[in-house]
Write a protein that binds this DNA or RNA. Sequence first.
RNA 1: GCGAAAGUAGCUCAGCUGGUAGAGCGCGACCUUGCCAAGGUCGAGGUCGCGGGUUCGAACCCCGUCUUUCGCUCCA
Length: 492
Amino acid sequence: MENKKTDTASALKDIISHAKEYGFVFPSSEIYDGLQAVYDYGQNGVELKNNLKTVWWKAMTMLQDNVVGIDASIFMHPLTWKASGHVDSFNDPMIDNRDSKKRYRADTLLEDRSALLEDQGKADEAKALMQHMAKCLDAGDLEGVRQLIIDQKITCPVSNTANWTEVRQFNLMFSTQVGAVSEDASLIYLRPETAQGIFVNFLNVQKTGRMKIPFGIAQIGKAFRNEIVARNFIFRMREFEQMEMQFFVRPGTEMEWYATWKETRMKFHQALGLPADSLKFHDHDKLAHYANAAVDIEYKFPFGFKEMEGIHSRTDFDLKSHQELSKKKQQYFDPEINENYIPYVVETSVGADRLFLAILCNAYTEETVGEGEQEKQRVYLNFHPALAPVKVAVLPLVKKDGLAEKAQEIVKEIKFAFNTTYDEGGAIGKRYTRQDLIGTPYCVVVDYQTMEDQTVTIRDRNTMSQERISIADLKEKIGHAVSMERIFEKLL
RNA sequence: GCGAAAGUAGCUCAGCUGGUAGAGCGCGACCUUGCCAAGGUCGAGGUCGCGGGUUCGAACCCCGUCUUUCGCUCCA
């Protein structure tokens, strides 16, 4: 048996086609030509995604003594985003140079010019320029900002020309209104990250849960970003789901926890079946305004190693900022050292959709089986049994002679324990293939011997080998193999 | 946002120089068969992404637009 995996760009196309054809991912509103960077999960996709969310949730909360979950709402008080820095840093006025095709932040161009003026000893002029720019930006006067760039005769460092486009505001947060009357409505945002829902509930959870530092709060939820450019299928979407955990620690201990969580999270991805050589850490060179250390866990997607999970040491930036803006103390009293402090935070944040894509890409297997004239291609999805959308398909070898009825009896017996499907249409080989294509790990076949001795064959997806077992043992044997415990035991 | 390529049945794709839409696979029913995508018969499924234009006539030519992929750019 020879495994063949294409690393080329066509690999992603094959996976996208497969995802659509077999009910994993559909383009959103496809009958209206789709909506850019938005996708829907189909009947098999939702099962896989739910399994991923469940395994993450349990690994975080059930397996950790000191992590609990919450589910915060998508709408949050507008000041939340002021405190988090998103209002300021998620709103960039951008300008393009038509000759070099390069894009710049308009405010950065002017700030650079201001610094240059100052170097030339024209401090007054520099200050006036900054004030003028601030006035324009506050008023939303983008044309005014462009005029400043032109008046200053700022040119593109690449093309050396001043052939500028208009200044456009790229607001990465989606906004909407709350309130019935639009004039009275106040602007609110769809959250661009789920983390803030945890920070604003930090004390609620700590007090009601009698949590002692170090402890964590986990959450799974949707977040929204108005991406300028969306690429690579479900890798970058405008509406996406995050699975993240904020871990609150005593200041000064954050780097130890950062190292611990790095290791824990890497182990998790490997336990799901992602191979070690397809995963790597990537340290951030440039740190975000809130972080003092940041690393990505990258997966080798068909389009290269890309971020799947981020692990950030967020310091006390968020809680401190919320404390300042809300004027509510965000302190924790640490009885061990008899001190009040704002905890430091270590965040682990994985994109549920990216993990889904990684698992799907990794599972997609093209394989040549048989030899000589018997040789043929087969495709199957090699999911960990605990993650597979369907765990077992029960197939009567033929429809007649009571085999179908017998098979349906078996389905009735085991369908409470795990996701079971029944298929009697077409030749047995075709039905095996149907299950391979959606990654079902086991096929149970009812044949003539079943009618005599109450045994069935059970076929393994990867090896295609069969084993005969008693119907009475089915539930336990399959149940054991498809249990998430098979993943959890690798985490210890 | 810029540049390039693409868009025809669920999927993969044909479709000549402009002349009223095709195949394979898949799907459904029935027959035959019975362990790895078997055969037969019948059938469902398409305003050729969408909107304009040119033309007697457009899947095909022109313009616009949407979507996707790739390269830039962006990614607190």
